[in-house]
Amino acid sequence: MNQEELLKVLKQQFPNLEWKAPRDLILIPSIVLQKGWVDNGSCSVISQIHRTELTITIMMEPTSEDAPWCFMISGEREHVTRGDGTAKSLYDLIVLLRSSLLDYANLVVQAASKSSSKVELDETGFYFDATPEHRLENVKNLDTRLVECIELMAMQYMTDLDNNLELSIDEDNISDPLELRCVNFLMDVGKVTKPLNKDYRWSKISRFHQSSDKEPAILDTPDWSLQDRITLLKDLARRFLKCKANHTMTHDFMCAGEQTLALLTEAGICKLVNGSSVFYEFVEVDE
């Protein structure tokens, strides 16, 4: 992991934050104070929060592959956190960062509140105590991304199965219902054509021909209600979390899984529990 890779992941996970590498930071007077860390030989990426002097700083040792990182939100001493530089640790960093930003946002929400009673935002700024109707509305607004996310997640899950990773929970069964649903979904959106083998043992994605002549479009899948789609993505997210806990997945599946959790969180369908990177609470969305 080097600074460029770190920047890429940060930009992907927090697309609305402007991440800057140290070279650019010299031009920003409010961040000159951070320069000492850069001079120390470590590299860092920094993001300013809404034109203020408040910054998020992530520092890494540039010289070794398994470089440790640490990050802090300026002024928040509690948020200085260290990782060990592994790929898993990077995703722990993302989760911690998201949770720290949320803590900060909640601090501001509380400070600006006219009431002394507690008011909280969820992971991405939606109020988590939204009514079921609001959650449904959130999801409808995310519909295109929901389909894309299921496609990505399902393809990645099947690919990892193809790589013989021990992902399948029901290996001895004729078919894992989740695999079957993934394949059905991918076929219905035109992502794969019919399998060569119709015995529905779907553990090998290589049995499918990638379909390139059909644009994926949810309009072509009337059988998949919004509820079905959400349920499939939630189940995939749960499977991802189980694999994450067991460290049995590829980097690509890890990326797809984190993206899925971010989307579900944004829609108010799941919520991180107690700052852990693997425990999420899921809520029901009724149509």
Binding site: Q13, F14, P15, N16, L17, I49, H50, R98, L101, L102, Y104, A105, V108, V109, A111, A112, L121, E123, T124, G125, F126, L142, R145, Q259, A262, L263, T265, E266
Partner: peptide, 21 residues
């Protein structure tokens, strides 16, 4: 001050969002 806080909180929500806007 209320308006300023509202604007700041809206911006924080946007920054926290995984959706690019």
């Amino acid at each position: 001050i209320e308006d300023e806080f509202d604007e700041y909180i809206d911006e924080l929500k946007r920054l926290l969002s995984g959706k690019q806007n």
